[in-house]
Design a protein around this nucleic acid. Structure first.
Lengths: 280, 280
DNA sequence: TAACAATTGCAAGATAATTTGCATAATAAT
DNA sequence: ATTATTATGCAAATTATCTTGCAATTGTTA
């Protein structure tokens, strides 16, 4: 039941101080959701005890429960990602595919919260200016590495997969120099040999970019630039590559725009493509 | 200073428990912003004292200050109303990443229109019942094939990539028989040798499944079962693998549910995972 | 005008949340 | 093998927040 409905149901019994509190809650619910009862009361010019009594009058066991309801209605449910997910889930019923898609959509919707266009542009600029891009990934991220290698090659950018056993990786890394870039992926945990690879890249002066999940900030040593956002799914269980793939695709598109060179599509198609994505 | 930057600045001094906490914060910052230190710690499986220490290590006077910073960055600053007032932020509409995400979301939203749960279940049942799954893909779809091969293996299903040149493919196809399944991908156009591969599979009585884009219905000869939906992007230009990846992930989850066997996650986690996707 | 009822601030008490000293276990260094 | 250091859970202490009994004030009614 919404806060408005609850208030309406007791409106005729509200005291003057309670009315002032209610007005304050409805005027700035998100701020109130992140405040204490004392802060709300101070803002309304009444005593905090009155705030506690109002919560009780509205049917909540405590002010904390009242605040939890405000949070759910004005922060959780108004989150565009949650709203979209719920709308889809409602229309699709108890479908496994529907549920999966709803979670992907929620995660994608939040992606811009983690990665601003400035960061994407900086990363694109760096990769475009380099002679060769070395790509390092382990585990499931290897399929993303394969994809990026192909996409970069289509853009006439020399890309090298650092795959195979440790000897193969080390041998290929010998070719890395200051004119190159290193692109590395990290999702569930910091990949084996990540530190050694990054340290070598730093030593030779190459630019390093990490595309990561929630562990991104904790990667050590840090890459020169980090693009990280949480993936959808569960922490210990099934996680998808949809969010990292969107990061990769965004990076490729940004590089295409940055470079203004012949790439995956012909120049006029590139223009149409970019305008398609920008005006959506 | 952002939470990510703060974490990066101390990343090399983080203890294992602190890393787990950080990962949790980055995975669901909005939920953490509305929780207590004890709730975060419980979720991460560490002690609440560790959460307090982490806040101090990150430079905050208290956990409450740390939480206020999370709130500001992930609730206040991401509020659409605030974002539009923020002179430094670009609105999502004019953002390249925003446009890309909007298109991915639109395509994902329509995916259930093309693929019903009955079709997904039928495909899952067939793949689960077979002895071995052969995977055939060309071009960018190869990264999906790599992913599917890994996922199927994690589910204890024997999977074989039909990669390499034509001779390699032909040699491996010789092992295909009536107890097996063939999974093939087709997006921009019918892949070279698709017809030969499908015909051979039909001849030996194997089950054939095609995961395709808009050309799916036009594939000839047809596979026994087709899962196809249009990808996002433009017909002649840049297209992403987000929709086919969602199909693959849905298939894997459906197979996990269908088989009720040990898979990517332990059985109890599987139960939780499936319920997460189904009740969202 | 007096009695009664309601409102609401005060402050003590209760509860919730966080911090910190301490001890133990694990790890690293000698 | 021994010693030193670090990590982290435990629990007591502290702080923050909320609730409730009480009383003063104000408004209403007879």
């Amino acid at each position: 039941m919404s806060i408005v409905t609850l208030v309406q149901s007791v409106a005729d019994t509200l005291t003057p101080s309670e009315r002032v509190l209610v007005k304050e809650v409805m005027a700035r619910p998100r701020e109130i959701a992140l405040s204490t009862a004392g802060e709300l009361a101070e803002r309304a010019g009444v005593h905090e005890a009155t705030a506690s009594r109002l919560a009780r009058k509205l049917g909540f066991d405590s002010y904390a429960n009242f605040r939890d309801a405000i949070r759910d209605e004005f922060i959780v449910q108004t989150d565009p990602a949650v709203r979209m997910r719920n709308t889809l889930a409602q229309s699709r019923g108890n479908s496994l595919l529907g549920g999966l898609i709803a979670q992907e959509i929620e995660a994608l919707t939040h992606l811009p919260d983690y990665i601003g266009d400035d960061r994407l542009k900086a990363a694109a600029r760096q990769l475009t200016d380099r002679r060769k891009v070395f790509i390092f990934a382990r585990g499931n991220a290897e399929s993303l590495a394969v994809l990026m290698e192909r996409r970069l090659r289509r853009m006439a950018i020399d890309a090298v997969l650092l795959s195979g056993d440790n000897r193969d990786v080390a041998e290929r890394l010998l070719a890395l120099n200051a004119d190159d870039a290193l692109l590395t992926f990290a999702f569930r945990r910091q990949p084996r040999h990540y530190a050694a690879v990054i340290e070598h890249a730093r030593k030779v002066g190459a630019f390093t970019l990490a595309i990561a999940g929630s562990i991104g900030p904790a990667l050590t040593p840090a890459a020169d630039l980090l693009l990280s956002a949480p993936r959808s799914g569960t922490a210990d269980g099934f996680q998808t590559l949809t969010v990292p793939m969107a990061i990769c695709n965004g990076l490729i598109l940004q590089m295409a725009e940055t470079a203004e060179r012949r790439s995956l599509v012909r120049l006029e198609e590139l223009g149409r493509l970019i305008s398609t994505f920008e005006t959506s």
